[in-house]
Design a protein around this nucleic acid. Structure first.
Lengths: 113, 113
DNA sequence: ACACGCGACTTGCATTATGCAAGTGTCACA
DNA sequence: TGTGACACTTGCATAATGCAAGTCGCGTGT
């Protein structure tokens, strides 16, 4: 089903999970407290619906995210980071820091949500 | 020439530079002291020649890597991280750490180079 | 002078991933 | 029973990857 890993390098293996332009943005959204499919779609980057669905499945498969019945919206599912998923925070943090320090015009969204 | 950014988010902008399965591996190689095109090709993940050439150009364009005449091999060019490129180390470090702690079978290569 | 080999790419083409728009199935509520 | 929002799927066009083979410049040996 799934591929064999490219090498035993922790960087290579980690990139096979989060090494693309969208996965970490979905995780960022969860860190920021979003949990519904629709909320992820509303993020300013504009992820496509098929890509989002694909990433959610892969993240659940990887054990980083779990689906659970939303308590706020009855009969609706939602997503949240698992304990393992939470351990990605340091990576996210180092990336945020680097972006803020090295890329002009970036800022933490005091997003109007 | 280049696209407008997807959002002002530092994560999104950073991913537009290093958010793929190969870029950080090339940077890893440079951190490990490799500097020649051929050395990058010899890494165990097996990057394709066209992808490597493409990434080197993009990294130079982004100011993270610079080309310089090799002092070891006369008449040959080599690549190394710029000062800005060096600032990626914390990101790399957080990824290595995460991989080692969360992915079975990963290890720092005491590579036979 | 000239063939040779090597390193560093470039090119062609098949496969896969992404982006976009539109369609489908489910469920709570009217 | 109807309606709409929501959460996906599906189709298809475009871009990125992967792989193999070809090109080009340079240094060496003869």
């Amino acid at each position: 089903m799934s591929d064999r890993r490219r090498s035993p390098c922790p960087i290579a293996c980690t990139l096979d999970i989060i090494g693309d332009k969208w996965t970490l943005l979905v995780i960022r959204d969860m860190v920021l407290g979003r949990s519904h499919y629709k909320e992820f779609l509303e993020s300013p980057e504009g992820i496509a619906t098929n890509i989002l669905a694909d990433r959610l499945v892969k993240l659940v498969d990887a054990g980083l995210v779990e689906k659970y019945p939303s308590t706020l919206v009855p009969g609706r599912d939602a997503y949240r980071l698992t304990k393992k998923g939470e351990t990605l925070r340091p990576i996210l943090k180092s990336i945020v820091r680097w972006g803020l320090e090295n890329l002009d015009g970036t800022s933490i969204g005091l997003s109007p949500r």
